[in-house]
């Protein structure tokens, strides 16, 4: 790797870290300041909405199969159905995921 590529790598690594750390630091200081002033420390409402919608967006983006085909779409829908059913029963995180992956994998292997 050339010297120039190292410079790019370090710049991106540092930039990415700052993108993750600086907004946290800003909010953390804001909350501490509010507490010190005797106010109730609170996050802006738009931010508390954007957090869950980010997760929903990640869910939507991850639904597109690695290799899209009628079978992989069918397996995705049924796999999600299995995940949902087990979640409704257990209200946990582990078992629904295992069930979803097993159903998805079984469909890909048996029908593929």
């Amino acid at each position: 790797m050339s010297g120039q590529t190292w410079v790019i790598l370090i710049s991106i690594a540092l930039g990415t870290y700052l993108i993750r750390a600086l907004p946290y630091l800003w909010m953390s200081r804001k909350l501490n300041k509010q507490s010190a002033q005797g106010k109730i420390a609170s996050t802006p409402i738009w931010l508390t909405i954007l957090g869950p919608t980010m997760i929903a967006a990640m869910f939507g983006a991850s639904l597109v199969p690695v290799e899209p085909s009628p079978l992989s779409w069918l397996a995705t829908v049924i796999g999600c159905g299995a995940t949902y059913l087990v979640w409704r029963r257990t209200r946990s995180m582990g078992y629904p995921i295992v069930a979803g992956v097993l159903v998805f994998g079984a469909l890909i292997v048996t029908l593929g």
Binding site: P52, I55, A56, M58, F59, S62, L63, P65, V66, E67, S72, A75, T76, G79, C80, T83, Y84, W87, M93, P96, I97, G100, V101, F104, G105, I108, V109
Partner: peptide
Amino acid sequence: LISEVLPFALPALFLVMVLPR
């Protein structure tokens, strides 16, 4: 098949995070 089947863990994980909301 590993690279085709295992990534389904991610949508399944996100789904169980979305549902309670």
